[in-house]
């Protein structure tokens, strides 16, 4: 069943005749030059935007390269092993052992994670499994707000509340401590890490399907069993990712920790000892670094190490999340 194909001469493609006397305002395709201009604009935008889009990808590499470029000077004269494991930090004498700083960072991060992981996971489970919808909706902005507080504010709060608290705790235990300590840094950091872990795990939990939950509930499991056996098990990978993201956040946090941790470059022996994390080293010495030879290079090396560690954590966590998302969807 085919019929004659219309030709241009049949009047196809021309304006339909209007009976109500209204003008055909536009040419069929608009004035040709304006159409061309629009298309050229679109094409130009496509090219330009594509170029712009490469910026974030390149930025990671440019940052790494820039820091490495500066760090080369010190790497050329000192073996990396001695820089990382050396215990003496005396820039004026050319000693750049970073062990104390690495140990300090590690110590506060571990303390923070020990406190933050159970609490924030519990909070996330509660919010996603137990809390009524309304409460979940109310909690979200609170978590965001907590994440949005400047680190200096956390620092001031730490000085006002946590440091005296730790001091008292120490004296109760018969340890002498100024309160400016690994423990104080860890507690403040833990609170700063809450939002990250809660946020990511909430997202992971919400991707566990409702059907699965309902199925478990219909088998007679109670809510806690569902949370433990279904939700937590299903999102194990996602939880690891959430924790790793929190970890990397803690690892690089600077100001808040710097303000409560004491900043004495010794490897800490107890929770009540002061420490000196790597980011604090950078923040405290930016002023002098240009006046001592190799000092700037050493600090850039410290920044490079920070970035590499955090980058590794982040890439790993994101990979896990992407994989988990794929298997879930």
């Amino acid at each position: 069943m085919r019929f004659r194909l219309l030709q241009k001469s049949d009047g196809v493609g021309k304006k339909p005749q209007r009976t109500d006397g209204i003008l055909a305002v536009l040419e069929t395709d608009g004035p040709a030059p304006s159409r061309k201009r629009r298309l050229i604009k679109d094409l130009a935008a496509r090219r330009f935007l594509f170029g712009l889009t490469l910026v974030p990808g390149l930025l990671v590499f440019v940052m790494l390269f820039g820091l490495f470029w500066k760090a080369r000077a010190i790497l050329a004269v000192k073996p990396l092993g001695r820089l990382l494991l050396g215990t003496t930090w005396k820039p004026s004498q050319g000693e750049f052992g970073m062990l104390a700083f690495l140990a300090g960072t590690l110590a506060v991060t571990v303390v923070a994670m020990v406190i933050a992981v159970p609490i924030s996971l519990l909070t996330a489970v509660t919010l996603s499994e137990y809390a009524p919808r309304r409460m979940r909706h109310a909690a979200r902005p609170m978590v965001d707000l907590l994440a949005g507080l400047p680190s200096v504010v956390y620092g001031v709060w730490g000085v006002l509340v946590i440091v005296p608290f730790v001091e008292r705790l120490a004296s109760m235990l018969g340890v002498s401590s100024s309160g400016y300590s690994i423990l104080a840094g860890g507690i403040v950091l833990a609170i700063m890490v809450f939002p990250t872990i809660i946020h990511v795990s909430l997202e992971v939990f919400s991707s566990v399907s409702k059907d699965l939950r309902d199925a478990a509930l219909s088998l007679g499991a109670n809510r806690w069993e569902v949370a433990k056996k279904v939700v937590l098990r299903k999102s194990r990978q996602g939880i690891i990712a959430a924790v790793v993201l929190g970890l990397s956040r803690a690892f690089g946090e600077t100001m808040a920790v710097l303000m409560v941790v004491g900043n004495i470059p010794r490897v800490p022996k107890s929770l009540f000892d002061p420490g000196y994390p790597l980011p604090a080293l950078l923040a405290n010495n930016y002023g002098e670094m240009m006046s001592v030879p190799l000092y700037d290079s050493a600090l850039m090396l410290a920044a490079l190490i920070l970035m590499l560690v955090v980058l590794t954590f982040n890439v790993a966590a994101r990979m896990i999340l992407i994989r988990a998302e794929r298997t879930a969807g």
């Binding site: 109500d20 209204i22 305002v25 536009l26 395709d29 608009g30 304006s34 159409r35 629009r38």
Partner: peptide, 19 residues
């Protein structure tokens, strides 16, 4: 559509929309 295809004039635009 008239605007992105190059119609700028206000009066004509108003009449077109009405139509």
């Amino acid at each position: 559509a008239p605007r992105i295809h190059g119609l700028r004039e206000k009066k004509t635009l108003a009449r077109t929309v009405e139509h």
